[in-house]
Design a protein around this nucleic acid. Structure first.
Length: 107
DNA sequence: GTTTTGACTAACT
DNA sequence: AAGTTAGCCAAAA
């Protein structure tokens, strides 16, 4: 039988993984890429979040870099939004850094 | 087809 | 600890 199923675009696979990050926890770009079956494509994880609609249900704000920092330009509007959302979920940020030890998602 | 780009990272200074 | 470098890989140009 020929397989007619449409393969998911990589972007969509990234989104699916991000969607699973529990509230109050965070994940890194590299981790997301890995779980999406794209090891070492951390940059793709990042660019896949760019351009998501503002009202998306995908919790893009729970994705941070491997150093526990927000990877957006601090001048960007989204930067403040991300801090706001994380704080609202009970995630504390000290000196621009989030403790991976405390909040990192372990699937 | 080739080259450039980037919400990245691990490994070095 | 903080800054730099080289490697990464899928998309977009």
């Amino acid at each position: 039988m020929i397989d007619k199923t449409i393969p998911l675009k990589n972007k969509e696979r990234i989104w699916q993984v991000v969607y699973r990050i529990p509230k109050g926890q965070v994940a890194t770009y590299g981790q997301i890429a890995l779980l999406a079956g794209l090891p070492r494509a951390a940059r793709l994880a990042g660019s896949s979040l760019k351009g998501l609609p503002k009202d998306t249900s995908i919790p893009w704000h729970r994705v941070i870099n491997a150093q526990g920092r927000i990877s957006l330009p601090p001048s960007s509007p989204s930067y403040k939004e991300q801090i706001k959302r994380l704080t609202e979920e009970g995630i504390l940020i000290h000196n621009q850094k989030i403790s991976l030890r405390d909040y990192l998602w372990e699937p």
